[in-house]
Structure formats: C-alpha cells, structure tokens
Computed example of a mutant assay.
Amino acid sequence: MTTSPIEDAILDLLAKTPAGKSIDPAEVAKQLQPERWQRILPQVRATAVGLARQGKLVITRHGKPADPDSFKGVYRLKLP
C-alpha cells in the first residue's frame, strides 16, 4: 500500500512528538507547503480522518477524542 506525502508528513511529525502530546494540522501543511500551506489544509484533514478510521491516530477537540466522521472546527492530532 502506498502512502501519500501528507500521510507520511503526519506520521513523521507524530513520531517526533513526545508521548501524549498532539500536533496542529497546520504544522503538517506548513512542512509540506511553507508558502501556501492553507491551501492543503482540507487534504490534511481528509488524510487525518482516513488515518483515524484506520486507528493510526486520534483526532482530538478540546483535548478529548473526537469522532472522525462528525467533528467540526479546530482539531489536533495525536497517536492512539
């Protein structure tokens, strides 16, 4: 199975993050496209949702796990 550059960037950043800490999806976007990072935020979100469904990461809102299919607004990513 091939992975996307976004998936690789998310998992790479999470691997470098201290246990229990989360990352901002904008960090992923900025790593991939420093100049126009806002443009790829929707793809980062879609990739994060897919990874959450596979159990590879947890999407959080206000520090609590969020349902990948129904969360809205500001979110963060962390390892399960």
Rank of each mutant, 00 (worst) to 15 (best):
residue 34 P to N: 06
residue 10 I to K: 00
residue 59 I to R: 05
residue 71 F to I: 10
residue 59 I to G: 07
residue 32 L to V: 10
residue 41 L to V: 08
residue 20 G to R: 08
residue 59 I to M: 10
residue 18 P to A: 13
residue 22 S to D: 14
residue 46 A to E: 15
residue 56 K to Y: 07
residue 44 V to P: 02
residue 32 L to C: 05
residue 33 Q to V: 10
residue 58 V to D: 02
residue 56 K to T: 00
residue 1 M to G: 14
residue 66 A to L: 04
residue 24 D to Y: 01
residue 24 D to M: 04
residue 5 P to V: 09
residue 11 L to V: 11
residue 49 V to W: 00
residue 18 P to S: 12
residue 38 Q to H: 11
residue 41 L to H: 06
residue 73 G to C: 13
residue 24 D to C: 05
residue 31 Q to M: 13
residue 8 D to Y: 03
residue 79 L to S: 11
residue 53 R to C: 14
residue 61 R to N: 14
residue 76 R to W: 10
residue 17 T to W: 11
residue 79 L to M: 14
residue 57 L to T: 09
residue 72 K to L: 10
residue 44 V to T: 13
residue 47 T to W: 07
residue 46 A to K: 12
residue 17 T to F: 05
residue 79 L to W: 03
residue 14 L to E: 01
residue 62 H to N: 08
residue 8 D to L: 14
residue 45 R to H: 08
residue 64 K to E: 15
residue 72 K to P: 01
residue 52 A to C: 04
residue 7 E to F: 01
residue 37 W to I: 10
residue 37 W to D: 03
residue 20 G to M: 08
residue 74 V to Y: 03
residue 46 A to I: 09
residue 8 D to C: 04
residue 14 L to V: 08
residue 45 R to T: 14
residue 73 G to T: 08
residue 1 M to V: 12
residue 60 T to W: 10
residue 8 D to R: 10
residue 27 E to W: 02
residue 42 P to E: 05
residue 20 G to H: 11
residue 37 W to M: 14
residue 50 G to T: 14
residue 80 P to Q: 05
residue 69 D to K: 09
residue 74 V to E: 08
residue 54 Q to L: 13
residue 48 A to H: 06
residue 37 W to E: 14
residue 3 T to E: 12
residue 71 F to P: 04
residue 10 I to Y: 00
residue 15 A to R: 07
residue 18 P to T: 10
residue 62 H to R: 12
residue 24 D to L: 02
residue 73 G to K: 11
residue 53 R to E: 15
residue 31 Q to S: 15
residue 10 I to C: 00
residue 25 P to W: 00
residue 72 K to S: 10
residue 30 K to H: 06
residue 74 V to C: 02
residue 16 K to C: 02
residue 60 T to P: 10
residue 72 K to F: 10
residue 43 Q to M: 09
residue 72 K to W: 01
residue 62 H to I: 09
residue 26 A to V: 13
residue 62 H to Y: 12
residue 39 R to W: 02
residue 40 I to V: 13
residue 10 I to P: 00
residue 17 T to N: 05
residue 80 P to E: 07
residue 42 P to F: 09
residue 66 A to N: 11
residue 64 K to N: 14
residue 67 D to W: 09
residue 71 F to M: 13
residue 3 T to Q: 12
residue 1 M to Y: 01
residue 6 I to W: 00
